[in-house]
Design a protein around this nucleic acid. Structure first.
Length: 322
RNA sequence: AGGGGCAUGAUGUAAUGGUAACAUAGCGGUCUCCAAAACCGUUUUUGAGGGUUCGAGUCCUUCUGCCCCUG
């Protein structure tokens, strides 16, 4: 076997029970720690809406990559995630424990399971605004510009995909690096070395069941006081258009608090957007052929699911069950 | 019971007698730095029957269903 650090990875759409399963696995194998791959749970103070595990739900298993950013941080990014998570994983392994990476943010998962290299080119707000103004005056102008600078990258991007077009230009104008030159295809990766050796389990659930669970979970979040949490954060002085607040639940309740929609509408919108998010997560993970899929049950983490999961991890040499 | 109105996809609406449209939902997809973001694509429709007409969602008629008014 290679000298690489083996990691267990648990992915799946929101509300399929990834967190519960990862804790159950960690408890079963005793010497594991969990590394969350979730772009909303990184923020301190956003708890109910991000379904952040409670102390009780953590079941005594150490969790990492939760509460690692403040809501005022506007420059948290995959690059940062990869950097922080990688060192956490190495640390866990160096202490002789098994890292279990669990989460639903596909890009974050890929950042540590594929050889993605992120250049250190931070967002440049001024430049972005300038580009935004150009596009507003002349729709399609930026994509046109990118075609001259980096035709390869431009060909991959739809002219309306303005966020990525701007990012590509931003990379070029700040570093002279052509964005296409740093691309590496996730699916047919070029054989570059990854830092870790992932063994990935994915949880699925029939759509109707998943949607029902999502709707139910949103209602529970409201009962648990999500609205008060959001109000509290705003009262604490956080800017309502912080990137962190683009997270599901927060954005919609802020719209309600600011008076643009009523509460019932806001809750319905959260459910709708969460359902669509879950669909996109499935699309994302579907194409990852490394994943071993297991059926999740809405009644909770059963013994058979736990056994199957542990079997997959141990068959691939991650650990030996005693 | 009498009078009037309405009936178009899953939902809400549009269409001087001339190729049935739009939005929403649903479904599929993209993805290298805000990713719980952003973006792209797409299935389904004229309540039932008869008539007028070269041609009917549209006009006439019967039926069915829903709504309103009168009693």
């Amino acid at each position: 076997m290679s000298g690489k650090v083996n990691i267990a990875v648990i992915v799946g759409a929101t509300a399929t029970g990834k967190s519960a399963l990862s804790v159950a696995v960690a408890q079963r194998i005793k010497n594991a720690e969990i590394v969350t791959a979730d772009s909303a749970q990184i923020y301190r103070g956003m708890n109910i809406g991000t379904a952040k595990p409670t102390l009780n739900e953590m079941g005594g298993v150490p969790h990492h990559m939760i509460d690692v950013a403040d809501i005022v941080e506007t420059d948290f990014s995959v690059a940062k995630y990869k950097q922080l998570a990688s060192s956490v994983i190495n640390d866990i392994a160096s202490r002789g424990k098994i890292p279990i990476v669990a989460g639903g943010t596909g890009l974050y998962i890929n950042s540590i399971t594929y050889p993605l290299s992120f250049q250190n080119i931070p967002p440049n707000i001024e430049l972005r605004e300038k580009f935004g103004a150009i596009e507003e005056r002349n729709k399609g102008a930026l994509h046109e510009l990118l075609t001259h600078i980096d035709p390869e990258r431009a060909a991959l991007l739809h002219p309306n995909d303005i966020k990525r077009v701007i990012r590509a230009l931003e990379i070029y104008y700040q570093s002279e690096i052509k964005p296409s030159s740093m691309d590496s295809d996730f699916v047919n990766d070029r054989g570059d070395e990854t830092e870790f050796e992932p063994i990935i389990v994915g949880l699925t659930m029939p759509r109707v069941e998943l949607y029902a669970r999502i709707n139910e979970r949103v209602d529970k979040m409201m009962e648990a006081g999500l609205l008060d949490e959001v109000k509290g954060l705003l009262k604490a002085g956080y800017n309502s258009d912080s990137p962190a607040f683009s997270a599901l639940g927060y954005r919609q309740l802020i719209s309600y608090i600011e008076g643009s929609i009523d509460l019932k509408q806001a809750v319905e919108d959260i459910k709708l957007k969460t359902r669509r998010f879950a669909k996109r997560q499935e699309t994302w993970f579907k194409r990852d052929k490394r994943i071993s899929w297991l059926k999740a049950d809405s009644s909770g983490i059963g013994d058979s699911l736990l056994n199957e999961t542990c079997d997959i991890f141990s068959e691939r040499g991650l650990f030996t069950l005693k």
